[in-house]
Design a protein around this nucleic acid. Sequence first.
DNA 1: TATTGTTATACTCTATAACTATA
DNA 2: TATAGTTATAGAGTATAACAATA
Lengths: 150, 150
Amino acid sequence: MTDLTALFSDLVRLETRLYNALDARLKAEHDLPLGQFEFLRFIAGRATTRVYDMAHEMAITVGATSKAVDRLEAAGRCRRTANPDDRRSSLVELTPAGSAVLAAATPTVEAELGIWLGAALPAGALEGLAATLSVLRRRAESDRRTDRAG
Amino acid sequence: MTDLTALFSDLVRLETRLYNALDARLKAEHDLPLGQFEFLRFIAGRATTRVYDMAHEMAITVGATSKAVDRLEAAGRCRRTANPDDRRSSLVELTPAGSAVLAAATPTVEAELGIWLGAALPAGALEGLAATLSVLRRRAESDRRTDRAG
DNA sequence: TATTGTTATACTCTATAACTATA
DNA sequence: TATAGTTATAGAGTATAACAATA
């Protein structure tokens, strides 16, 4: 029987250390906190993005997300535009500066992750990790109980 | 080639949702934030624990850890005792109340994790996940760059 | 009525840095 | 000098809740 508590502990400790290392390097090389990188990447991956969608993605409240968009806008990396389909909301999109910093930071992220994840695992272990995390994430996102965005 | 940025994104999103679900349930059923649970579990697993050791485990600063121990002490769940081997530091240990709440919370954590991790994966996937996370965690902890405890 | 978003307020947790004490 | 810990200060980020506008 797998010790799920130990597994969770390993998951959290690994995530913390990866997050710290990536955040420090992105700040140093691109003046870009990792949290901002994640928002930029999410926005870039969609045709249209609302604050509401971003909140669900990150599992934080809409209010907190609105303030995060404020910070991105203040940094000149995204803007809110009118949503023609629903005037309650805005569509959030990258500015050219936002696209540029995302493009510059992406290879940095890949390189740093390669240091931590890229070597000395049994054959197929990294692919297995990716597949399992993807399945578990999808399942977790289909469950309301982790959703704070309402 | 595995997309490491996507893997990292899945790791962070999964961790966030598991953390939120566990934290909410532990607060509701045991008045115990998940962060406190993790400290209690770490303390219980050692013969002797110093603030310094806890800081390295959690990858936060010694100052932040000292305040976390203050909160645990205020809740009556741990205490500082004199360290006979080094009078600069204290030894942190659980109180009976700390041991009791840890014992009560542990099956809750296992049950909740079982909901999220315990079903519908390919044979061996969960064991593979546990093994890979364990290896990657150990490797990350051997690297100074994620360490904020100095 | 329900949804989407903003904002005011308060709170938790953390980092930084100055400091004490001991090794 | 280096290590272990405490505390003051400040800041980032979040939640809660009240509010406005639109569906």
